[in-house]
Design a protein around this nucleic acid. Structure first.
Length: 834
RNA sequence: GCGGAAGUGGUGAAAUGGCAAACACACUAGCCUUAGGAGCUAGCGCCCAAAAGGCUUGCGGGUUCAAGUCCCGCCUUCCGCACCA
């Protein structure tokens, strides 16, 4: 058949054609206004940093989101599916240093390149809502928010020890320090420096951020757990120990106040104010403490804080346990942290492993104060910290359970005004100052007379100067731009200095998804009505690496906006999906490993449809995906089969366009329609929750395999034309979320004029999907012996009869007793034979 | 140490407690040919020469008529947190 061999699937031609058509129709992917009668659906993928190149992780992320967006359009939803650019950040400055290109130019040209890549792959983004965070019409609202938060007391400035990356030449947030190393520079140790820094008071929302996690049922448990740990809520008690012969008090934080009669020393962090005071008067102590501080710093920087050997220095002073007036020695210890709790602990060696190790080393007494409640039970070896048992050696509290004692001891502390119940969080305030150029300028002015003065709203945006020389001499590049720095104080009009720090780029990504709903608004970050309509985001998709930073800041920001009266919802994201990594040869793709696969190459060789469909087919979306080019070729061959199949039989299908849909199928047609409707049901269900798109693609492949096997019947007219039409039309619709270009092309070939994106998603007809005969396994004592064919609606008796009538079963049961027959209708028959 | 996820053919993987390995990739044999990164047919977990048969979801127990799936204990790998008092 000459005709057949000339048919060739040419993805490049098809994809170019449709790309042009889609580009010519800016409304195709645009959401309808908030007055739309359709239900809304907001699907969002995490916006990329414009590095210049899309990588496979992006392609995977966006292919998942795009399949969902297309499916939801076809289900009749009003879909918001936007894209933007997380466009501030250090690489632009590094590139500027390297190539002498202005950061803005470099960034914008990268954006243009990546946008072309996205359009080439055919993602259904509404570019009318595009957000670019480095442009003034976006970052002015960062400044606006900063001022609103300042007014609310949620922004403050303090001198603090900060994480400093010498490579970035800037401050890093705690979240950006990974085991003492910079999150961008895996081999650069982070240093500590003291600087005046701007902070967001995220800790004001610590409890709410924690509580909110319980309600985020559409989030992976893993992410919720990570955030819980990060917030690190700890309930306990703070107790003041007086210091013998001195006026200071030492406030300790403990979660186990019930063990306080076992406290045989008090341990202070090396940077504790009392230690500083003592060291000031004691040169010897000062030297030793300096060493401890140094040691602790190094251990923290290298991430080995958990492994350093415990040691300390006795101060020679004593603290008084307020409960029993017992004096206990005060030590300075290398394992006590100043930035958690109060920087001081009571040491209970009998019931804390760390205290035990320390006390053993220095022969500090160890006193057991908890005993097993069951007097017959063997006493566990010290130290033990289980919160079960009763108190002993604890005066009037003896015999109480740990929990009872905690409460009573707290009450006593409150009565005696030497302590109280306390909650401590691990979460720290968010340091947002960066001594970098390529970020949002912080809208504050330093006036000698008026102090800190906010830039008035009408002077926003504070524009980043465009012409600037980037050098690596440290300090903020903006501080070297006189026309930026030198301003008049908005209050007194005298010469003043503009703040030269810029904001952490995580500010940009904390609210960008609100801007998408109203990207062109010039009088507000976004309008209330639109936010109310579109939020919360129905589905957010991205990498798990953002489980803590980005997603906790975004939740914080939403709560702040709620308290500013801008939004109504507490949480920005209803459902979160974290997709797995794309790996190659068992490792994450990276330039240094040389295992990077370029999306452009894949698209050029196999087409966009094959590339993105492979990304969905090779693994379920939540798992890591091993990129194998042979697999892409396989998907491409599959698409070619689909193309030939539809191409060949389209004329028959088109001829039936005017006829009624065929329930009149017989023979092969019945079987094909059955498979078709089973496939519709399977894929529809998967979109509704399970998201195993790999098996969705497999199901379409099975369907195509069956259609192909029935090629002769499709061609000969043995299967009625209306049935052929339904088969091919539905096949193309099912394929549309996964291979949009090919689907659009074949949709047109089938004589359809309107966009397939707005065509109705097919409905599975349960009657057509139903099997009339099913194969059922027959087991004897749980072991598979035979398979029998039975009518699908047979009753249990018929299943049993069919099983017993089977030759193999007869042979196995001959001369034995069938003690029991278990029939699971439609599932299995199991004979218990003795 | 704490928390989470995972462990199934040569590979990626599939399997509401009910026929383990669907769908692909790779490989093998054959066909076709306009010699292609094409198409078609067949085979492809392990043992056994083959058949018959037996075995098989990291390891060991358990629950059940029936376990890859549920429960208990262990091992390994990956991820997150980590002197957080």
């Amino acid at each position: 058949m000459v005709e057949e061999t000339e048919l060739r699937y040419d993805p490049a031609a098809i994809e170019t054609k449709w790309q042009q058509r889609w580009a010519a129709d800016p409304h195709l992917y645009a959401a309808e206004p908030v007055s739309s009668a359709k239900p809304k659906y907001y699907v969002l993928e995490m916006l990329p940093y414009p590095s210049g190149q899309l990588h496979m992780g992006h392609v995977r992320n966006y292919s998942i989101g795009d399949a969902l967006a297309r499916h939801m359009w076809m289900r009749g939803y009003n879909v918001l599916h936007p894209m933007g650019w997380d466009a501030f950040g250090l690489p632009a400055e590094n590139a500027a240093l390297k190539n002498n290109t202005p950061p803005r130019e470099w960034t914008l040209s990268n954006i243009a390149a990546m946008k072309r890549q996205m359009q080439r792959i055919g993602f259904s983004y509404d570019w009318g809502t595009e957000v670019t965070t480095c442009l003034p019409d976006y970052y002015r609202w960062n400044q606006w928010f900063f001022l609103r938060m300042y007014e609310k007391g949620l922004v403050y400035r303090k001198k603090s020890r900060v994480n400093w990356c010498p490579e970035c030449a800037t401050v890093l947030a705690n979240e950006q320090v990974i085991n003492g190393y910079c999150w961008r520079h895996e081999e650069t140790l982070v240093e500590q420096r003291d600087l005046e820094q701007w902070f967001f008071r995220i800790t004001a929302y610590a409890q709410e951020l924690l509580d909110g996690l319980d309600k985020l049922e559409g989030w992976p448990e893993k992410v919720r757990t990570m955030q819980r740990n990060w917030i690190g809520r700890s309930e306990g008690t703070e107790i003041d120990f007086a210091v013998e012969n001195r006026s200071e008090k030492i406030r300790v934080f403990t979660t186990r106040v019930d063990t306080i009669f076992g406290a045989t020393s008090v341990q202070l962090a090396p940077e504790h104010p009392l230690v500083m005071a003592l060291a000031a008067a004691d040169a010897g102590l000062k030297t030793q403490v300096a060493e401890l501080i140094d040691e602790q710093k190094k251990a923290k920087e290298s991430g080995e804080m958990g492994e350093i050997e415990k040691h300390g220095i006795p101060t020679g002073h004593f603290a008084i346990n307020p409960y029993n007036r017992e004096p206990v020695p005060i030590w300075v210890a290398n394992y006590v942290l100043m930035d958690y709790g109060t920087g001081a602990i009571m040491s209970v060696p009998a019931h804390d492993e760390r205290d035990f190790e320390f006390s053993k080393k220095y022969a500090i007494p160890i006193r057991q104060v908890i005993a097993s409640a069951d007097s017959n039970a063997e006493e566990p070896e010290l130290p033990f910290s289980a919160e079960e048992g009763v108190l002993l050696n604890s005066g009037e509290y003896n015999g109480l359970t740990c929990i009872q004692a905690q409460k009573r001891l707290q009450e006593a502390a409150a009565r005696g005004a030497f302590g109280e119940a306390a909650v401590t969080f691990r979460l720290k305030d968010w340091g947002v100052s960066r001594q970098r150029y390529w970020g949002t300028p912080i809208p504050m002015i330093h006036c000698e007379r008026d102090g800190l003065v906010p830039v008035p709203d009408e002077q926003l945006p504070v524009l980043l100067p465009e012409r600037i020389e980037i050098t690596q001499t440290g300090g903020s590049p903006l501080s070297r731009v006189p026309e930026f720095v030198n301003v008049k104080c908005p209050k007194c009009g005298r010469a003043a200095r503009r703040e030269t720090d810029t904001m952490d780029t995580f500010v940009d990504s904390s609210w960008y998804f609100y801007r998408y709903t109203d990207a062109k608004n010039v009088s507000a970050p976004f309008g209330r009505e639109r936010a109310r309509y579109w939020f919360p985001i129905d589905q957010y998709i991205g990498g798990v690496e953002h489980a803590i930073l980005h997603l906790i800041y975004s939740r914080f920001w939403t709560k702040v906006m709620r308290d500013l009266g801008m939004t109504e919802n507490d949480e920005p994201v209803r459902r979160l999906f974290t997709q797995g990594m794309v790996i190659k040869d068992g490792a994450k793709m990276s330039k240094s490993k040389g295992n990077v696969v370029s999306p452009d190459d894949m698209v050029a060789r196999y087409g966009a449809d094959a590339t993105r469909m492979y990304a969905l087919f090779a693994a379920p979306p939540d798992r890591d995906l091993e990129w194998q080019e042979d697999g892409v070729a396989g998907v491409s061959r599959f698409l070619a089969r689909v193309w030939r199949l539809v191409e060949k039989h389209a004329p028959v299908a088109r001829s039936a366009a005017s006829q009624a849909q065929g329930r009149s199928a017989t023979g092969a047609g019945v079987a094909l329609l059955r498979k078709l409707h089973q496939t519709i049901a399977k894929i529809t269900q998967d979109f509704e929750g399970r998201w195993h798109f790999n098996t969705c693609v497999a199901a379409i492949m099975e369907l195509v395999n069956e259609l192909q096997a029935a090629d002769a019947q499709l061609a000969s007219g043995e299967i009625a034309a209306p049935v052929v039409r339904e088969l091919l039309r539905t096949l193309v619709l099912l394929l549309a979320p996964f291979a949009p270009y090919l689907s659009a092309e074949l949709w047109e070939k089938l004589g359809e004029k309107s966009a397939i994106l707005r065509a109705a998603w097919p409905k599975s007809d349960p009657e057509l999907a139903k099997e009339d005969k099913i194969e059922v396994p027959v087991q004897i004592n749980g072991k598979l012996i035979a398979v029998v064919r039975v009518a699908s609606d047979a009753d249990p008796k018929q299943f049993e009869a069919a099983a017993l009538a089977d030759e193999k079963v007869k042979a196995r049961t001959a001369g034995k007793t069938v003690a029991k027959v278990i029939v699971v209708p439609g599932r299995a028959v199991n004979l218990v034979v003795k």
